[in-house]
Amino acid sequence: MSASPWGLLGIARTSDDGEIRRAYARALKAIDVDQDPGAFIALRQAFDAARMHAAQVAARVPEPALAGDGPEPEPRAESSAPEPEPEPELEARPGWVEDVEAIQALIFGDQTREAIFAEVGLRAERLLNGPEMEQIDHAARVEQWAVQVILSGIPRSNALLLPALRRFDWIQRYQKWDCHPAIRAVVGRYMDCQLVNDLNDGKGIYAMPFRLIQRGTKPRGSQVTLVERFLAMVRSEYPTVLQELPPQSLEAWEALIARRNNALPARFGQARRIYWAKFVRFARRYKLDLVGQVLFFTVATLLGLGLVVATHGLALIFLVPALVNANKK
């Protein structure tokens, strides 16, 4: 379809939506959709393209005359700052506005996470189960607000996350192909929280590195591989967990990891560095961890020693009697 949409609609280029619709209606009545679906598909594409053009023009020049009727464009602000809050009604301030304001003040305030958790949870339950939530547009606005507050308030917004997740059925939405990215991010955050819970309960091999970082103990070389792997996994699959970890401790561990990765091979001389690199590649290929590496080294050294001892032993057994015999002669 390279022809201009205006030609198919039979009008000059315009940004008047009403005129486009009238032209479309006229053209539609001239074709038989059942007999010639191709003509309809082309017409429909032209119609959509023309309306898109009109909407773009309208967006550039805001027309106050049109604001009265028709749906207003959704304020889909992508900024990380939270929306002020759904516009309060003009008459009496309804009860829910207070909860919205209080939750925002608590999450973006400076009290500790533990201190605000209970109150945010309580207010969230009241807000989300209030009688106004029966109204679909109110519920939609609260949903949008909740998504933004949860995402920009990580990690302090957990108390709002759980009731909102249940109320708006986000898990179910998450499984659809057309799930909104913001909701996908919120459910991702929920999964991160599940991981943190499991780690706190000591489940899985990463519970130990998690505890090490969280307690802020002084980084030790013996743990560094496991911590490094834990951080890599978290970065690729559970990004918000990083925000749950104390920053100084995280920094200290990362510094150690970086130091080791840069410095370790350099300690060996130029020639040995190559062997080191080969060994690292070997260890990676066979997925040996630190214990495996040490074990492998030990076994390899023992084998080498054994070989030496064995050959020397042979020499002793055969050569010494021969020499003794020769002396006797």
């Binding site: 028709g70 749906p71 207003e72 959704e74 109204q135 679909i136 547009d137 519920a139 939609a140």
Partner: peptide, 13 residues
């Protein structure tokens, strides 16, 4: 909710 979202129309519209 789904039909409103898909047609991009608010209840007020």
């Amino acid at each position: 909710l789904r039909s409103l979202r898909d047609s991009n129309i608010a209840v007020g519209g």
